[in-house]
Design a protein around this nucleic acid. Sequence first.
DNA 1: CTTATAATGAGAATAGTTCTTGGTATGGAA
DNA 2: TTCCATACCAAGAACTATTCTCATTATAAG
Lengths: 146, 146
Amino acid sequence: MVETAIERQVERRLAESDVRFTRGRRAVIQALVEADGPKSAAELSVLIGAEVPVSSLYRTLAVLEETGVLAPHYSSPGLTRFELAEWLLGHHHHLVCIDCGQVEDLAVDEPTEQQIQALVSTVAKSVSFSETNHALEIEGHCAKCA
Amino acid sequence: MVETAIERQVERRLAESDVRFTRGRRAVIQALVEADGPKSAAELSVLIGAEVPVSSLYRTLAVLEETGVLAPHYSSPGLTRFELAEWLLGHHHHLVCIDCGQVEDLAVDEPTEQQIQALVSTVAKSVSFSETNHALEIEGHCAKCA
DNA sequence: CTTATAATGAGAATAGTTCTTGGTATGGAA
DNA sequence: TTCCATACCAAGAACTATTCTCATTATAAG
C-alpha cells in the first residue's frame, strides 16, 4: 500500500493535534483521495466496505472535520458530503447534477480563478461583507444523466 | 393586507396547477417576501407564528417547491432553507455566515453578473458539462457575527 | 346547499446523524 | 516487558429535521 503525499500531509496535521491516524481514518482519506468529488457517509460506506462500521464512520468524519482535514459540503437534503480540505486538494469549484445529485470537483485554471476572485472581492466589499472564501456551484446534467 | 406583485404571480402560478392559495401558503409567501434570504421551516415557524402548525408548514413548503414557487437551499447540516424561486425574486447570489449559518441574498449588478455568467459558461463548456444555472456563495462573517 | 376534492392538524413514523456506554488498542514511563 | 493513561472503537439508543397517516375541515363547482 503506497502512501500518497496527501496521506503524509494528513498524518502530520493529525500528529499536531495529538490525534492518531488509525485504520478507519486512513480508509476514509484513501477513499476521498480516489474520489472525484465530495462523498456522504453512506457513499463512503459503500466505497470502504464493512470494515468501518457506520457509527465509527460518522465519528471519524467528525474528527477529520474538526482537525481541518475534511470540509463539509451541502447540496442534497438531509445529507452531508465531505471532501478533502482546500489546503490538501487546492481551491476548486463544483459541478452539481440536478438529476442524480452527484457532485464533481471542477478545477479552474489560474487566470479564470483570479477573475472570479476579483469579482467576488468587489461584490463583497460593495456590501461590506467580510469575505473569507467563495464557492461556485455550476448546476446542470452530469455525463451519466445527460 | 395589501397583496404584493409577487403574491399575484404566485396566485396565478398556483391556479395553473390547480393548487389553492390558502391562508397557510399565503403566510409562507408573505414571510419569504419580507425575508432577506432563504429560511428554514423552523425559522419560518418563528416568523409566522403558531397559526401554521409544523406538519402543515412542511407540507406547504413541499407543495410550493413542487409548483416551482420556492427553491430549496442547502448550506447548513440537516436543514433545508427555502426562498422564492428566481422567476419571482430574480437571479441573485448568497452571503453565507460561517459563524451563525444565516444566509442573506445578494443582488449583483447586471454587468458583474454578465461577467460571472461568461466565466461560468466558458468553464462549463471546457469540461463538456451542460450547465443550466450557477450559484455563487460568498462565505464570511455577517454583520451580527463580525 | 350539496358534493367531490383539496387541504389541514395532530401525532406516529422515518432517515440521517450524534451520543452513550462499556470495552480495546496504543504509546510512554518505570 | 508491564503498567498506566489516554485515545479509540462497536453497538445500539437517542436525537432532530422531516415525512407520512388518517380523520376532519374547508373550498369551489354544479
